Measured scan of single mutants.
Amino acid sequence: SEEKKKAKERLERLGASSELARELLDRANGNAEKAERLLRKLL
């Protein structure tokens, strides 16, 4: 979806690899905010 694509791009801008961004979104069930929080914990 367009929303998921935007979320993935945002995670990548924050420093996630394409693969990591995809994994985070999967774990967050597509929830962009939750995926971002997970990423911030990792960085």
Rank of each mutant, 00 (worst) to 15 (best):
N29C: 12
S18F: 03
L38G: 04
E9W: 00
A16Q: 02
E23G: 04
N31R: 03
K4E: 14
L43T: 06
G15S: 03
E12G: 04
R27Y: 12
K5S: 12
K6N: 11
R37H: 14
E3D: 12
R27D: 05
E23C: 07
L14D: 01
K5G: 10
R10Y: 10
G15K: 02
S1N: 13
R10N: 07
E23Q: 12
A32M: 14
K4R: 15
D26P: 00
R13F: 12
A7E: 05
A35R: 00
E19N: 08
L14V: 04
N29T: 04
S18V: 09
R27A: 12
N29P: 01
E12I: 14
R37C: 13
E33L: 09
S18N: 07
R10L: 10
A28E: 05
L14I: 07
L25T: 02
L25E: 01
L14G: 03
G15W: 01
S1P: 12
R22Y: 11
E3M: 09
R27H: 08
L24G: 00
K4S: 14
E33W: 06
D26W: 06
E36G: 03
A16G: 03
E23A: 10
E36F: 02
L43F: 07
S1W: 12
A35V: 02
R40S: 11
R37D: 15
A35S: 02
A21D: 01
R13N: 09
R27M: 14
K5C: 10
R27K: 13
R22W: 12
R40A: 11
R10D: 05
A28D: 00
R37L: 09
A32T: 08
L20F: 05
L25Q: 02
L11T: 00
L14A: 06
K4W: 15
N29M: 10
E12Y: 01
K34L: 15
A16K: 02
S1D: 14
L20C: 10
L42Y: 10
N29E: 12
E9P: 03
L24N: 00
L38V: 07
S1G: 12
K34V: 15
D26K: 09
E33P: 04
L38H: 07
E33M: 09
E33R: 13
R22S: 14
A35P: 00
A21Q: 02
E33Q: 12
R10W: 12
K4N: 14
E12F: 00
R22A: 15
L11V: 01
L25C: 07
E3R: 11
E2G: 11
L25K: 01
S1I: 13
G15A: 03
L14M: 13
S17M: 03
A32V: 15
A7N: 08
E19W: 04
L42A: 07
N29F: 09
K8P: 03
L25M: 08
A32S: 09
G30T: 01
A35E: 02
A7L: 11
L42S: 05
K41P: 04
R27N: 07
E2F: 09
K34Y: 15
A21I: 09
L43G: 05
R27W: 15
K41D: 15
S1E: 14
A7M: 09
K5T: 12
A28N: 05
S1T: 13
E3K: 11
K34M: 15
E12W: 00
L38Y: 04
R37G: 13
A7R: 05
A28P: 00
K41M: 13
E19K: 09
L43K: 05
K4T: 14
E19R: 10
L42M: 13
E3W: 03
K6A: 12
E12K: 08
G15E: 02
A32G: 08
E36N: 03
K8L: 15
E2D: 14
K6V: 10
S18A: 14
R22I: 14
K5R: 14
R37K: 12
E3V: 11
A35I: 04
A16H: 02
S18E: 12
E9C: 09
N31Y: 04
L39C: 02
R37I: 11
A28H: 04
E33I: 10
K34H: 14
D26C: 10
E12M: 15
R10S: 06
K41V: 11
S18I: 07
E36T: 04
A16I: 08
L25H: 02
E19C: 13
L43Y: 05
L20Q: 09
D26N: 09
K5Y: 10
K41T: 10
A28R: 00
A21R: 01
L20K: 03
A7I: 13
L38R: 05
R37V: 07
E2M: 13
S18M: 07
